[in-house]
Each structure stands twice: as structure tokens, then as C-alpha cells.
Nucleic acid binder design. Structure first.
Lengths: 234, 234
DNA sequence: GCTGATCTTTGCGCCAGAGCAAAGATCAGC
DNA sequence: GCTGATCTTTGCTCTGGCGCAAAGATCAGC
């Protein structure tokens, strides 16, 4: 891909490319291929051969996993600057999740072999990738513990706070979670039903903690949610 | 550590050291430190500064995570040949889990800096570590999906099958899960209570699927458990 | 501005599984 | 072989949250 100042600066901000030399960064950027998709479309589906690793430049993605009987779980939301499909690097045969655009997206990608070359040549890049994976492991461990030991209300509060810190945008009424996110999506993030999620949100809205809209949540008093998420005596 | 033929052969079998040159393997082995602990003792606790990476040579370990209010979750069982505490490599400040010996254990360890040297010098080692992390990520994603969408009975069947494949030993009556594993432990693995676990196990025992003992489970008909774990129409 | 499609809310019944309590196994140490 | 400690089983009750159904919002396209 042609290296422009613009996308090089996005590269530089990506956690996975931290502390790389400009030289390396440019080489990597030049090997990248661009791919834009529209909201609702997919970069790849669960079960597709894992051949590319992507870096999201613009937009937001939902990474979901489905069970054989069609039940879905929303694993994470990817925002600009994040790598996705990185399991391909680790020789996984197929993607374990699907990557669907929640907004119009632009991303760059490398083939497995291309990026692996860089990883083998640039130790810092190997360390960064390793670090990213380790963070995921820790996050999933936390979520697993939470889903085993905590009830829906607390998990929901946590999920909203996490989303706000990752994709939040300051607006008049509070912090808007800046992607179309249905009750169903929220339910799939925390392992609950959309009904239960809707009930808690309504309750919180009536207490003034949040403002609701269709596929929209605005957090008015984050601290209220923190209380629900952390309080040891509910 | 003095390099003996014995422990070098254990090293060679460890997934994380696959495809390394003998030369590299010997260098790594010589830098390792030995540490044995007895059943019940800990290699490290959750919250300890993450300074060492371990390779288990003998025994079995339980990796558990606790929430602030004391609730515990059993994340995984480590058996011989597996690396643990690897988050230390990725600059994590503290261990996110505790590592407790379920049997008498012997392990070798390296300091974070020692092993990082090797990872930076030996690309194949970096790839192996990355691969291990990616496998963990995928496993946790699966478990998270299961805990969100599947009920206790199925999760329990899966957990037993996983344990059997990892730590199973063929005995007269079937496949023994070869480490002391209480009902409580099983419950903590799948996010349930020991009561519920006990009920399902008793039920299965009366159907001849398993043989139970104190901190012991023998699987007589793995296929029966597979049915429970996989069947789409329960 | 109407129409159909999609998303959300709310009411109600129900049940898987949690949370006790109490009795029964099994083991380790003396 | 007794004793206390630990682990397990089983009965019972209770409830968080699921699973509808049906009505209300909101949006997109014509």
C-alpha cells in the first residue's frame, strides 16, 4: 500500500506497533493492503480459513462467536487502532469468530505469511503481539470468572463501563457509547437475554443513571454504574 | 541448572519448545532453576509480582482466580510439559491467578528477563509462545460462550472430557482423572455449585456413565458424556 | 406521511439451579 | 480402631432470570 503520512500516524498509534523503528513501520505499512466494508458487512466469518491479519483504521467491529445451534455471543468490540484476526498468526486454521462492521469500516491487512515474516524479523513486534494476546487472556479470564460468580446486573454495569472507556464519546447528556448497540448485543456480551438487559436499563434510566435510545445508551452518572459493578454488599 | 538427559527430554516434549535446535534447548535448560513443592503448596499467588515463568516437569497444578469477595474460579489444570505464569513474559505486573499444587510437583523456572532474552533471540520460541497464548484465547472464548449459552449439565460433561484428555489415566473401570479433584473444584471450573455438580454426577453414576469416589471421578463410557456434551436435542 | 420492518418494553408464568441444613462417606493421625 | 476433619450426598425451599406474548417505539423506503 502507498504509505501516506495519514495512515502511518494511525499505525504509529496502534498498540501492536508501539516502539517500532520508523523504518520497520514503513516497511510494514508498505506491505499492507486496504479493504473497506460497509456497516453490516463482514471482514470474515467464523470458520473461514484464517489467512489474514487486520488492523482497523476507522469504524467499529463486532467480533461474535456462534455455537452449532445458532446461539451467539459477542466477544468484543474492535475500535480503530486494534489488530484483529490475530489468531491467524498463531497458525490457527480457521477464525474462531466472525468480524462484522457495526459502522462503515476501513482496515488494512497482511497475509499470514507476510506478517509472520515481520514478526520473525522484528523482535519488538513479536513482544507486542505476545503482549496483546496475554492481555486478551487476562480479560477473558476476568470475564469467565465474572460470568461464573456475578449476576447479570453487575455484569451489565461492567460491560457498559468497558464499552464507554473503549468507544465512549462525550456528549451533552453524558458519555455516549458510540456504535449502534442493541439490547440483544448487550445481552450477548454478558450472557443474558435481551429482556433482562432491557429491564435493568429501564430501571437505571428511571434512576437517572443512563439515557436510552434505540440501539443507543448514554451514561449520565458513570459513578452510579461503578457502584453497581464494584459494591460488595448489593 | 545442570543439564541432564532426563530433563532435556522433558523439555523437548514441551509444546512451547517444539522445533527448537538442540543448541538453543540446551542453553535454555542450563539457564533454568529448579523448584519443587508439595501438594497443596503454591508456586505463586494471584497478585504476586509476575517475575518468573515456569515449566512443570512433574505433578499437576490448579490455576485459580479469586474475586475480591473471595469467590473462586478454577481456570485450568496444568500438567507436565506445560508452561505457566507466561503472562510474566508479556510484562504483566502481577499474576492474575494462583498456582497451587494438586500433587507433589517439580518445575523449572526462568526470570522474566532471562526468558525474554531467549524469546527475542529465538524467533521460533516467540512463535511457539504466541501460539500457546492464541490457543488459550480460543479456549477461553469457547468456555465463555458455553457458560453464556449452555446449561450446567453440558458444561460439566465437557469439563470432564477435557480433564480426561489432559490428565486421564486408563484404569480397570475406565478413564481415571488423575488428580485429586473435589466436587467443589469441578463446580468452580464450570461456574456452578458443588451441590448441582454432585447431583448430576450421582445421576450419571446410576446410569453407569461414571464411577465416583472422594475427589475422584472415573469415566466409564466417555461416549455417554460426549452425547450429553454435544447432543443438540437434550 | 404511510407502511412494514426492526427494536424495545413490560407483564406473567415457570424452572434450573442456588442456597441452606443435616446426614452419610472417607480419610489422616493418634 | 477411634476421633475429628473434610468431602459428599440428598432433601427442601426459594429466586434470578429465562421464555414467551403482545403492545409500544423508532426507523427506512416509497
Amino acid at each position: 500500500m502507498k504509505t501516506t503520512a495519514t495512515n502511518l500516524s494511525i499505525f504509529r498509534k496502534a498498540p501492536v506497533f508501539q516502539n517500532l523503528s520508523d523504518n520497520d513501520l514503513i516497511r510494514i505499512a508498505e506491505a499492507a493492503h486496504l479493504r473497506k466494508i460497509q456497516s453490516g458487512e463482514f471482514y470474515f466469518f467464523q470458520g473461514d480459513p484464517a489467512e489474514r491479519i487486520y488492523l482497523l483504521l476507522e469504524g467499529q467491529l463486532k467480533m461474535t462467536q456462534s455455537s452449532p445451534d445458532g446461539q451467539q455471543v459477542l466477544m468484543r468490540v474492535i475500535s480503530a487502532g486494534m489488530l484483529f484476526g490475530a489468531v491467524a498468526l498463531a497458525q490457527a486454521e480457521v477464525y474462531p469468530v466472525s468480524a462484522q462492521a457495526a459502522l462503515d469500516c476501513s482496515a488494512v491487512y497482511w497475509s499470514k505469511t507476510e506478517l509472520m515474516e515481520f514478526v520473525l524479523q522484528i523482535p519488538q513486534l513479536a513482544m507486542n503481539t505476545l503482549r496483546m494476546m496475554a492481555e486478551y487472556v487476562q480479560e477473558y479470564q476476568d470475564r469467565l470468572r465474572q460470568s461464573a460468580t456475578e449476576r447479570v446486573e453487575r455484569r451489565l454495569a461492567r460491560a457498559l463501563l468497558r464499552l464507554a472507556s473503549q468507544s465512549g464519546r462525550r456528549v451533552e447528556e453524558g458519555v455516549l457509547i458510540d456504535l449502534p448497540l442493541s439490547r440483544q448485543d448487550l445481552a450477548e456480551m454478558i450472557g443474558a437475554t435481551l429482556f433482562t438487559v432491557s429491564r435493568f436499563l429501564s430501571q437505571w434510566e428511571s434512576h437517572g443513571l443512563v439515557v436510552l435510545g434505540r440501539e443507543r445508551v448514554i451514561i449520565r452518572y458513570p459513578h452510579g454504574l461503578v457502584n453497581i459493578a464494584e459494591d460488595l454488599t448489593p
